[in-house]
Simulated assay, not measured.
Amino acid sequence: MSRPDTLWVRKLGRQPYEPVWRAMQHYTDIRDVNSPDELWFLEHDAVFTQGQAGKPEHILMPGDIPVVQVDRGGQVTYHGPGQLVGYVLIDLRRLSIGIRDLVTAIENSIVAVLASVSIVSHPRSDAPGVYVENGAKIAQLGLRVRRGSTFHGLSLNIDMDLSVFQRINPCGHQGMEVTDIRRQSAAEPQSQNELADRLGAELANLLGYLHRREVSEHCLPDASGVL
């Protein structure tokens, strides 16, 4: 089983949650040793997703926002406008890494991107994700491994309506403060496209890929990489 040297990157624009989730599952289920490793960047319509460890009491007031029970790790989180989501679909066995290595690489890539816009941040050993100096959470992380491959991924808060997070206990933590790039940086927030480019480059480098290949078509793949 040869180690892949290219990470394929797809920018999918704004998408409803469930069709993309089902596409991730399908890609993971039918991929083989020749299927490319992929990174999907997008923005979701407003949705709460409840992970496998989720407890109903952490969903306080969902109101008109749908709640979707999903198969990633972790508890409840929110996806919506103003947030960059990145789904990481890689074969861990081909890269010869474990899930902890991948989590560390994702967190460190986010920290590097935030540093590029003058935001100091750090991961926490007791709670996956990335946090700013006052303890507020600026990026979320949740993964699933199936057949040796990962799906789900990360979300980075850029310029959001943060009041939505008051409807839940974010990631199961009561009263956790959530923030975004706009509130933490004096500079004008960069576009989602620019931040996706930086994040993709950082993650590819930390995982040891030699190349990134951006797919121009804004559509979901099959497991062969053929559109």
Rank of each mutant, 00 (worst) to 15 (best):
D5E: 10
D5N: 13
T6D: 07
L7I: 00
W8N: 00
V9P: 03
K11W: 12
K11N: 10
L12W: 08
P16S: 09
P16E: 13
V20T: 15
R22I: 03
A23N: 12
M24D: 06
M24G: 03
H26V: 00
T28L: 09
D29C: 06
D29K: 11
D29S: 15
R31F: 02
D32A: 02
S35C: 09
S35K: 10
P36M: 11
P36I: 07
W40R: 10
V47S: 08
T49K: 15
T49W: 11
G51T: 11
Q52L: 15
Q52D: 05
A53Y: 00
G54A: 15
G54R: 15
K55D: 14
H58I: 03
G63H: 13
D64V: 09
I65S: 04
P66S: 13
P66V: 10
P66H: 09
V67F: 04
V67L: 06
Q69I: 04
R72G: 08
G73W: 15
G74C: 03
G74Y: 05
G74E: 05
Q75C: 14
P81Q: 14
G82E: 12
L84E: 03
V85L: 04
V85T: 05
G86Q: 09
Y87N: 00
I90H: 04
D91A: 06
L92C: 02
G98Q: 02
I99M: 07
L102G: 06
L102T: 01
V103R: 05
V103H: 02
T104G: 01
I106G: 01
N108Q: 12
A112D: 11
S116Q: 12
S116D: 14
I119C: 04
H122Q: 15
S125V: 00
S125Q: 08
G129K: 12
N134W: 04
R144W: 07
V145W: 12
V145T: 10
V145E: 13
G148V: 02
S149Y: 05
S149T: 05
T150I: 04
H152L: 11
G153P: 11
G153A: 13
S155D: 01
L162P: 03
S163E: 09
F165M: 13
Q166A: 07
N169M: 13
N169H: 15
G172N: 02
Q174E: 15
D180A: 09
D180W: 06
R182L: 12
S185F: 02
A186D: 06
A186S: 04
E188K: 14
Q190E: 06
N193D: 14
L195F: 03
R198Q: 14
E202D: 12
A204E: 04
A204Q: 01
N205S: 13
N205Q: 13
H211E: 07
R212L: 10
S216A: 15
S216Y: 01
H218V: 07
L220E: 02
P221K: 11
P221C: 12
A223Y: 10
A223W: 06
G225N: 07
V226A: 15
